[in-house]
Design a protein around this nucleic acid. Structure first.
Lengths: 190, 190
DNA sequence: TCGCAGCGATACGTCAACGTTTCACATCGT
DNA sequence: ACGATGTGAAACGTTGACGTATCGCTGCGA
């Protein structure tokens, strides 16, 4: 038993953990949840299958762990812009990520996974909730400062703003141009 | 060769086609695209595997065919309500369908399928486009009649309205209550 | 009526992924 | 230095779905 320096001390474990989790997200983005295989992750990571089974009981646990691990906030620096501008910047940032990124290509996989599996659902909903919290708070601040009408329901407005971005990405062949974010703000928070 | 009474004349073919397509959609809703099996569809339909392979080359063709076939318009009767009310009724209807229906449970499967396969994507986007066209036209009408501000971009507003409904369904644990549809209209088309 | 066509069932070989086990080797901490 | 431990590779039997082929049966339509 080691002296317990942190959660893991053997750098071999940390390294393989890192490459495996990265490969897992890459595979998820590339082929979707249904077609991800422990073997394909192992190959992509340049790792033996046994190394994966040694640390995770199954595919779901591995992918859930991967998302927990890469669970960064990714909120852009908004400086102290006026509320409306800050919201437009935030939405532009979201639109950029949603339009094209590894993360973006995982969204359909997460949506589908969430529909079939409770653990994926819990992660997916929590992750979404945390990311939209920043927007809700911006809107609340704008209402307090009188820059946004009091009649606006921050939760509903957030659904409309983020919803428009995701709708375009998932249901149409024309994702929202990040440059249009401010038009979206004008529309919903007019 | 038959006299060609319509596309198919043998009632056995029509019957098996119908039960197979129905079972395909049911399976898709229940287990998602990745876990749908020709064998599971055959069992659910009470049909031999060979009957399916006789008519479709593979799973994708079958599921695409199923959606083409069940491609109903499903637009509610809007009578001649004032535009804002008509939009609220339409959105309430969409919200109801999206919150809970067999079709609704296929949405994640379609989104995921669309991400990985061009044929599914084409269907999914076309289907979505057709369904949102009614809303775009309602908004256009409202603008023409002066009941909606000229500055509103019908396409963008449609993304925000439908997007809010889908966002709630797909990314949160609290789907939009259909009764809130009119609040949504007030927010976006204020 | 009666032959043909489509049916459901079942068996088949193939393949891919499963999860386990074994092994020699590299790298760790002490 | 060295024993302990994690590693990548490979082989294994098992499972589940693939797509094909072959039944005897049913019920269609001419």
């Amino acid at each position: 038993m080691s002296a317990g320096a942190g959660r893991e001390s053997d750098p071999r474990v940390e390294r393989s953990r890192r490459v495996i989790l990265t490969a897992a997200v890459g595979e998820l983005a590339d082929v979707g949840y249904g077609r991800v295989t422990i073997e394909s992750i192992a190959t992509r990571a340049g790792v033996g299958k046994s190394t994966i089974y040694r640390h995770w009981p199954d595919k779901l646990a591995l992918i859930a762990d991967a998302f927990e691990t890469f669970h960064e906030r990714m909120v852009p620096d908004l400086g102290d812009l006026p509320v409306r501008d800050a919201i437009a910047v935030l939405l532009g940032h979201v639109a950029e990520v949603v339009v094209d990124s590894t993360f973006s290509r995982c969204i359909p996989a997460l949506i589908e996974g969430a529909e079939r599996d409770q653990r994926v659902r819990e992660f997916h909903h929590r992750y979404s909730a945390e990311r939209r919290q920043a927007l809700i708070e911006l809107i609340n601040g704008g209402i307090r400062e009188g820059q946004i009408k009091q009649s606006v329901d921050p939760e509903l407005a957030t659904s409309a703003l983020l919803g428009a971005i995701f709708y375009r990405r998932l249901m149409t062949s024309e994702p929202l141009d990040p440059a249009d974010a401010s038009r979206l703000v004008d529309l919903v928070l007019a």
